[in-house]
């Protein structure tokens, strides 16, 4: 027997049962992880009528219609098995009980009566792009989107600056109280927003920031995760560089802004990705502090829609896709960055 069950293929070039099992597990994983998102995207392109179908069709299909002179409405096309065994494409004029009155679009004058079980709808792919365009016009979806964008960008910039400054202080200097400051930063890790929801709300209200985007941006701007991540990276920078700059009469601020920060770029990039992810997806705190719909972020807006639009899944699904699209793009381009960043820091 062999060890490789938990390590590698038994014999290079041959495939053992454990490999088959592994690939089966991974294939199931692909279906289970990708399937739901794919189903969301496909569903979001269906017309409201197609969404009501049960059992649902996989692809966004709608019944083909044809405009026939003499009929105001477009008529639905069916494939009909005629009594003589031939199959014809006919348009339905109306249905009376178990009989359908149909006509051949080429010969609209003759009405043909067929039993309804002899006909079968002709369907074609049709993408309901209006699911995407209409929410942008009818609801404040665009507003929520831009609110989220502002929050994400401004908050990430603030986080990068103040976290890198603190990290610089804790990485480069030796001073009294440094250990205490480090402990303080660790301490904040233990106090998530779930614990201080009400008092932070009080502080924000006292500052007069209720129902402004600043209320969402400020409380999470200083992150212990970011300080540690950047400090760890700055500790690896050569000290000679800083000493040399001091010799050249560079001020401490210049050393930070011109020398250390540019060298910390890889770690800053990881923190930027984390921060974008946190801010774009943030839910509980904005839910508590934002009560006016003009300042809703995308997540809060989407949650409000799902309460109001229970019957309008076609809009809701399209808006969900639009909400996840930016994240999906970020992931496609920065996947390696993100996964190695998390594997190295153990944080998200």
């Amino acid at each position: 027997m062999t060890v490789s069950l938990f390590r590698q293929t038994r014999h290079p070039g041959r495939i053992g049962w454990t490999d088959i099992l592994s690939y089966a597990y991974l294939a199931l994983g692909v279906v289970l992880m990708f399937g739901p998102v794919l189903w969301l995207v496909l569903s979001s392109l269906k017309t409201p009528a197609a969404l009501l179908e049960f059992p649902p069709s996989l692809l966004p299909l709608t019944q083909k219609t044809v405009t026939v002179p003499g009929h105001a409405q477009p008529l639905e096309l069916y494939r009909v098995r005629m009594p003589d065994g031939t199959v014809r494409e006919l348009a339905q004029v109306r249905r009376i009980g178990i009989q359908a009155q149909m006509l051949d679009p080429a010969d609209p004058a003759t009405i043909i009566r067929v039993p309804i079980e002899a006909r079968e709808p002709i369907r074609e792919m049709a993408f309901a792009w209006s699911n995407y365009t209409e929410p942008l016009q009818q609801f404040a979806f665009g507003r929520y989107f831009s609110n989220s964008l502002i929050v994400t960008i401004v908050a990430t910039i603030i986080t990068l600056i103040i976290n890198s400054m603190a990290a610089y202080a804790l990485a480069i200097y030796e001073f009294r109280g440094k250990a205490l400051m480090l402990l303080l930063v660790i301490g904040t890790l233990m106090i998530p927003i779930t614990i201080v929801l009400v008092p932070v709300f009080l502080v924000i209200t006292q500052m007069g920031l209720n129902n402004s985007l600043w209320a969402v941006i400020l409380p999470g701007a200083a992150t212990p995760t970011g300080v540690f991540l950047l400090r760890q990276y700055m500790l690896t920078l050569p000290r000679d560089l800083i000493e040399a700059a001091r010799m050249d009469k560079a001020s401490e601020w210049q050393i930070y802004a011109r020398i250390v920060l540019p060298l910390t770029l890889p770690a800053l990039a990881v923190l930027a990705i984390f921060s974008i992810m946190w801010r774009w997806n943030e839910f509980l705190w904005p839910l508590a502090v934002l009560t006016k719909s003009e300042v809703y972020t995308l997540q809060i807006g989407l949650n409000a829609f799902q309460g109001e639009l229970q019957t309008q899944w076609h809009y809701l699904l399209a808006m969900t896709v639009m909400t996840l699209a930016p994240v999906a793009l970020v992931f496609v381009f920065l996947q390696r960055f993100i996964t190695t960043g998390i594997a190295n820091t153990g944080m998200k």
């Binding site: 992880m33 992810m277 996840l324």
Partner: peptide
């Protein structure tokens, strides 16, 4: 494949 849902927002995950 296993990692990407981590990036999705809780609202999106729940609605899916």
């Amino acid at each position: 494949v296993y990692f990407f849902p981590v990036l999705l927002s809780p609202v999106v995950v729940a609605l899916i």
